[in-house]
Nucleic acid binder design. Structure first.
Lengths: 214, 214
DNA sequence: TGTTGCTTGTGAAGCCTTTCACAAGCCTAC
DNA sequence: GTAGGCTTGTGAAAGGCTTCACAAGCAACA
């Protein structure tokens, strides 16, 4: 789609800009400068302009960026002009929280199916999503055209689950299990590990220094 | 404690090394080389050695790193030779999931108090932690010597909650609300945003390219 | 139309992180 | 005890990301 090698940090910031633009819209602001975007996302104006410049020129000199237009542009760049069907594997504590977490739907991601190995959890979940037995993973994922999977299983099961997802054609995985997944490199994996983040905070507190990082 | 300017990515990797060492112990391995550490955490052996070299020399040439010793060393570097009392603000979906999530306790973080503005949630939580009314935040945090707070409130309440925590002497915040927190720079903030991570995956899928990132 | 003020887009510089490559050093086995 | 094989620790090189700094351009207004 676009040129290669956009860094992960750039993509992260693009998401932040998009989030900000969506929040800004109701306020009636029609235009935002790179400086304003920067201040409200915790970066610098040069960084904002550089990030956007990888994809084109979207601003007007002397004015800034049109809020609506930049919102559409960023959504397109990030692949969010569409909705993504997502499969959730593991309906324990974290899985259940995700099922009920409206922010995902609001931002374009629909959990269309959930899976659990525990028969007791199979059926209709409180949040309205159907929980399938794990055996059905391949069938349901294929029939629903799922390309993004969320792993919220116990750590022991994560690796195997990842392999099954990969084999079924899923090419992006958000992993909540505190393990490194070994997947073919046709699959993009992001791991979220709460304890790991807390450990980062522990380090910051221990090495005693108040440099706030967002 | 140690020399300055350790990058966030280094700290992240140190956590991964530590996690791996703890997993490796039961297997009976007494020694691990930087190559083995690297392979199992998704980096390179040179990176492992460089990361460790910021803090000292812990290996034995020709052999590798003693598992027990390096585990202790990393725990000390990360400030994990102690336990951290943590306060949780917001006992909704995410907050409840965290309360029941044993991995935190296992890795040295004790949620010693939870808070919610909703009277109905106040009392003893299923997971055994006391849920306090929000008004009690300052009292309880101070009396329990909490220095790490987890914000799991709705986004609108996050900023104010962060300020209250900061004013009460909390100097590290793990933020689950999808907003940028503005805190004095005596406070270190890390934000975890599920939708943001999914957007990163969306970008990867959209810009069509299979470069697996862990 | 000309002037003033402001903001973008971008090469270049600066800084930081990762990778390279190799001397130094440990261990085993003969 | 010494030869061979392996691994660490680390300067130096390479690579990547961020910041700088400024020409180009838009808008408002006289």
């Amino acid at each position: 789609m676009t040129q290669r090698k956009i860094s992960e940090s750039t993509v992260r910031r693009l998401s932040l800009y998009l989030r900000l633009l969506r929040e800004a819209r109701p306020s009636g602001k029609r235009v935002l400068s790179s400086r304003e975007l920067a201040e409200r996302t915790g970066t610098t104006s040069a960084q904002v302009r550089k990030d956007l410049s990888f994809f084109g020129s979207f601003g007007k000199r002397g004015r800034g960026y049109d809020v609506d237009e930049l919102e559409r542009t960023l959504a397109r760049i990030l692949g969010l002009q569409r909705r993504w069907p997502v499969a959730l594997i593991g309906v324990g504590k974290i899985g259940s929280a995700l099922l009920g977490y409206g922010d995902l739907e609001r931002r374009g991601f629909d959990i269309v199916a959930a899976f659990d190995i525990d028969e007791a959890k199979v059926g209709r979940h409180a949040s309205g999503v159907t929980v399938w037995p794990l055996d059905e993973l391949e069938n349901v994922v294929r029939s629903q055209d799922v390309t993004i999977g969320i792993i919220a299983t116990p750590p022991e099961a994560a690796e195997k689950t990842a392999r099954r997802l990969a084999d079924t054609g899923v090419s992006a995985i958000l992993n909540f299990a505190p393990v490194k997944l070994s997947t073919p490199d046709t699959v993009t994996v992001r791991t979220m590990d709460v304890a790991l983040e807390l450990e980062g905070l522990s380090f910051a507190l221990t090495s005693e220094r108040g440099n706030g990082v967002s």
